[in-house]
Computed example of a mutant assay.
Amino acid sequence: MSKKKELIYESALNAFANHGYSYTTMDAIAEEAKVAKGTLYYHFKTKEELFLYVNQKGVQMLIDSVAEAIKNPTLTPQQRIVHVLDEHLRFFSENEKLCTLLLTITSGDFERDVIIRDLLANYFTLMESYLGQLQQNGLIDSALEVQTLVSAFFGSIAFTVLRKMYRKEEIYTDDTRNTLLSMCKGVLGVH
């Protein structure tokens, strides 16, 4: 990615996370990125295109981060589950603006929001496949519904992170990690 496009991405992410879609203007993004409006419009024809790009890039960063943790061949399946939890906490603690955007901001447009929801579906598909595989291998009770497990796993982490962000507390602490791990014990084969 070009340096200018990365500056635009970071500025747009900040603006959308801080002000929402409706109150963010292309002029404000260009000003924050310290690029000419022509440069901004060269890379993104509309605010909607830029909003979708920011969300798409963010979700892909999350997917890549989690996929790398899932594939770590040096860990046992139980250690890998812990590593996946750690990776979620690390990712969200290092990407607070993205966390805010993905978990709290809607664009105000139903069709645009459906596109964002569909981007997150790629994350859920990855996690459902992973936990489904663990279930097939006997590490997760076969009576449990994988989709609900994934939603509960993601929701527990995401809303813990959001609450800590709003309270201006440190996100990735031993206490937070250990509490979330305790909730996973037994269900996800974590000991």
Rank of each mutant, 00 (worst) to 15 (best):
Ile8Trp: 05
Glu10Ile: 10
Glu10Cys: 06
Glu10Trp: 00
Glu10Arg: 14
Ala12Lys: 05
Leu13His: 05
Phe16Lys: 02
Asn18Ile: 02
His19Tyr: 14
Gly20Pro: 04
Thr25Gln: 04
Met26Gly: 15
Asp27Phe: 06
Ala28Tyr: 01
Glu31Tyr: 05
Glu32Arg: 07
Glu32Val: 10
Lys34Gly: 01
Lys34Arg: 07
Ala36Arg: 03
Lys37Ala: 12
Gly38Lys: 02
Thr39Gly: 03
Tyr41Thr: 14
Tyr42Glu: 11
Phe44Ala: 08
Glu48Phe: 02
Glu48Thr: 12
Leu52Glu: 11
Val54Gln: 08
Gly58Trp: 03
Gly58Thr: 14
Val59Lys: 07
Met61Trp: 05
Val66Trp: 03
Ala67Tyr: 03
Ala67Glu: 14
Ala69Trp: 04
Ile70Trp: 00
Lys71Asn: 13
Asn72Ala: 14
Thr74Leu: 10
Thr76Phe: 04
Pro77Gly: 04
Pro77Asp: 13
Gln78Glu: 15
Gln79Trp: 00
Val82His: 01
His83Glu: 12
His83Cys: 05
Val84Glu: 02
Leu85Arg: 04
Asp86Cys: 01
Asp86Lys: 12
Glu87Gly: 00
Glu87Tyr: 01
His88Gln: 09
His88Ile: 02
His88Glu: 13
Leu89Glu: 10
Phe92Met: 11
Phe92Asp: 01
Asn95Ala: 11
Lys97Gly: 02
Thr100Lys: 08
Leu103Gln: 15
Gly108Asp: 12
Gly108Tyr: 10
Phe110Val: 15
Glu111Leu: 15
Arg112Val: 15
Arg112Asp: 10
Ile116Ser: 13
Asp118Ala: 06
Ala121Phe: 05
Tyr123Asp: 11
Thr125Leu: 13
Leu126Lys: 06
Met127Lys: 05
Gly132Pro: 01
Gln133Tyr: 00
Leu134Val: 06
Leu134Ile: 07
Gln135Val: 08
Gln135Leu: 11
Gln135Pro: 05
Gly138Thr: 03
Ala143Tyr: 08
Leu144Glu: 13
Leu144Asp: 10
Val146Ser: 01
Leu149Asp: 08
Val150Ile: 07
Ser151Lys: 07
Phe153Trp: 08
Phe154Asn: 12
Phe154Thr: 15
Gly155Arg: 00
Gly155Phe: 03
Ser156His: 03
Ser156Cys: 09
Ile157Lys: 05
Ile157Glu: 07
Ala158Asn: 13
Ala158Gln: 09
Ala158Ile: 10
Phe159Arg: 12
Thr160Trp: 01
Thr160Asn: 14
Val161Glu: 04
Leu162Thr: 12
Leu162Tyr: 03
Lys164Gln: 12
Lys164Leu: 12
Arg167Ala: 11
Arg167Val: 02
Glu169Val: 01
Glu170Met: 09
Ile171Asn: 03
Thr173Val: 03
Asp174Ile: 15
Asp174Pro: 00
Thr176Pro: 00
Thr176Asn: 09
Asn178Met: 11
Asn178Ile: 05
Thr179Ile: 10
Met183Ile: 15
Lys185Gln: 15
Lys185Arg: 15
Gly189Asn: 11
His191Ala: 13
His191Ile: 13
